[in-house]
Design a protein around this nucleic acid. Structure first.
Lengths: 344, 344
DNA sequence: TTGTAGGCGTTATCAC
DNA sequence: GTGATAACGCCTACAA
């Protein structure tokens, strides 16, 4: 029965891995394991003298506590799982940065997964997180109807949706006011005299739906008829360039474009540049996110600011509260704002 | 003695957490735990019939394997720790994306930490990773002289440096050829007739040092005297704008600027714009990274392409090989390339 | 204040 | 092909 342990032990020693356990520390310090444990965890019920001694011995031996063992015993890992579509998207990078900073302030680790906008990948990620026994999950759901959210609710894992919502009545969330975004952007365009506004939208998620509603509301308020053909849902797997080119070729004669995000705006600008369509003289362009490079584009991009980092921070706080046992529903909607620059 | 376990059990059940263990599955399926384990892990030494039965029962009960327990026993977590300065930096976002994709292809999880360019934070991150018992670490060291690297070597944890190196002779790494970058950029400027080239550099890390050497080499080859005042090391905590403004105010009369990265170039462009210094007519600007927005800046930025994603992939592969027991040293240096656009 | 022992959930070993 | 059992490293209730 020693085989397993010896093999493991040797394997690790060969690689020089920290094989020192609390038992080793206790023995070397000439105390019992529980005393060592108490000392290591800065508990009060140890004499100051032994505490110092144990700590010194642990240091000398290069003792590294094993979170796996601790997590297994305690049923808590101090780890939060985060699932967003892609960390390559600076929008989510900012959100995640906010989450991570807030979480680490409370001594929580962040386990990050990308869904790449695939519901299956999203689900698989959450499954992994459950196996890792994370204490909670922060999720930017791929779709409004999300099996993943269902699963999270069933499993009883504390979670908070971020940036996007899902239609589950139990879900807490921290999002930007997407209706307001759609309305704000469209109205800004209308105020400049535009009537035929091409909306290059995302598809499937809650933001796309709500911004579209905001777009329609603004049109209606201004008495401008809604033209379905002017709304282009672009899947994340399709290059924006194609969608824009198509729309432009169909003779819809838009005079302005409302882009779902700054990244799409980049593609749109590329197409316009190739076609020698000048911004804003021939075509106005407004976008969303306010990523930091937008101010230095040619022309500087008019965009809707979304407090990305702050949304991440708030999501983390909401989750922390839930984990601490706060039963209150959290439905936080933060306000966007218009950043006027040269593209409208 | 039941107190602890009962309390844990209840606590979890209250929250609805998956409390189903392999033992529960075994009992419900009417088999022993080892049989259940074999079935769940798709081992051959189980009859197809029982395998299917066990799997069905597990599914019905909503069994979620506990990676903590498994990791504790096996001494392997299938988790890799990654430490970069900041995921907010699109350069590292790309590197991490490459790492994550390659790793998940081999069923490894990625545990991500930011160092924020602080050696202490970097060290703390690695400490956490060790507590989590990660199987390996990928690190973009803050400084060339790194206690963290030392620590990693001492602990015997397989690791690979990425994007930057450290001066430890034992360290494997995957980097871009920073000397070549410095040389390439400087030469491109020299070829356009520039002689007074302001280098806005980073500080402390290996890339900064090597690019500076490349810069000097290119100058020397062209017979241009090296002027120390034209090299500006900018710490990550200092806004580039200040450094550039200062340099400009000192009457050094540079005709071109070599920026350490596209992000710094953004700040540089802001300053130049405020001062009504035209690019490239009054001042040439070349940068590094080739982030995707650079093509659409005003003017489009000439920059050195660094294969960020690929570097991440290669680092992951190198680490995987090490973990599999490959003893071979890995010192991979990938080539940069010049992307000529309108800023030079 | 300190030591002893049990168990968290899993898998490898060994006997059947 | 299957089942019992011993660890992995840790923390805490209890006894001393």
């Amino acid at each position: 029965m020693k085989t397993l342990s010896r093999e493991n032990g040797r394997g690790k020693r060969e690689m020089g891995l920290a094989r020192v356990t609390i038992k080793d520390v206790a023995e070397a310090a000439g105390v019992g394991v529980s005393t060592a444990s108490r000392a290591l965890n800065n508990r009060r019920d140890v004499s100051e003298k032994t505490r110092r001694h144990v700590l010194a011995v642990a240091e000398r031996l290069g003792y590294v506590p094993n979170s796996l063992a601790r997590g297994l015993l305690l049923g808590k890992t101090k780890t939060i799982g985060v699932v967003v579509s892609s960390i390559l998207n600076p929008f989510y990078a900012a959100v995640v940065a906010g989450i991570e900073n807030r979480l680490s302030a409370n001594d929580y680790k962040t386990l990050l997964f990308n869904s790449d906008e695939h519901p299956e990948q999203e689900f698989a990620a959450v499954k992994m997180l459950m196996e890792q026994r994370v204490d909670g999950v922060i999720l930017a759901p791929v779709a409004a109807e999300s099996v993943t959210v269902e699963h999270l609710v069933d499993a009883g894992i504390p979670f908070v949706l971020v940036a996007r919502t899902a239609s589950h009545p139990m879900a807490d969330y921290v999002v930007c006011d997407d209706f307001a975004i759609g309305h704000l952007a469209t109205k800004a365009l209308i105020d400049k005299g535009h009537k035929r506004i091409l909306m290059v939208n995302s598809v499937g998620n809650s933001s796309a739906k709500l911004r579209w509603e905001g777009y329609r509301a603004a049109l209606e308020e201004a008495g401008i008829p809604y033209d379905e053909r002017l709304v282009r849902p672009v899947s994340p797997f399709e290059p924006v360039e194609n969608a824009v080119s198509e729309a432009l070729d169909e003779g819809l004669k838009p005079t302005a474009i409302f882009s779902f995000c700054d990244y799409m705006a980049l593609g749109i600008m590329k197409v316009l540049r190739e076609r020698r369509i000048r911004i804003p003289q021939d075509m106005a362009l407004i976008s969303c996110d306010n990523l930091d490079f937008t101010a230095l584009l040619d022309p500087p991009l008019t965009t809707i600011h979304i407090p990305k980092y702050e949304i991440g921070v708030e999501a983390a706080e909401a989750l922390l509260a839930k984990i601490e046992g706060d039963e209150e529903r959290r439905e936080r909607v933060v306000a966007p704002s218009l950043i006027e620059r040269g593209s409208v």
